[in-house]
Amino acid sequence: MTTDVHQLDDGAWISVNDSREVNVSDLWLLAKSDFCDCAPTDFLAEGFVETGIDPPNIQAKIAGRCITCGTEGVTNWLTVGRVIEPESGEFYGVVQDSVHIPEK
């Protein structure tokens, strides 16, 4: 089965195989990111701009803000979860408030 991923409702959430899996309004801790000078970046997800797949990873670029320094922008690709077995299509989300490293 092909894994189907997209953002909907003005970037409010990410759908994986027609199931709402990742929502805006969570805080993500980003390490080694170019987003701002904070270490780590305490990033509020305000909208999903783009989604992608790098099997088994489900990825997204997220618009939002560092709530420590106020820098606004869009992240590089972040892994938001995984679909390990495309046949089942089951999605395993990452834990947002653990540390994440965006792709360069």
């Binding site: 409702d9 409010a12 709402r20 929502n23 805006v24 909208g47």
Partner: peptide, 10 residues
């Protein structure tokens, strides 16, 4: 708001 809306933060 978050009572019903997907996009709201608060």
């Amino acid at each position: 708001g978050t009572e019903f809306c997907s996009l709201s933060i608060v």
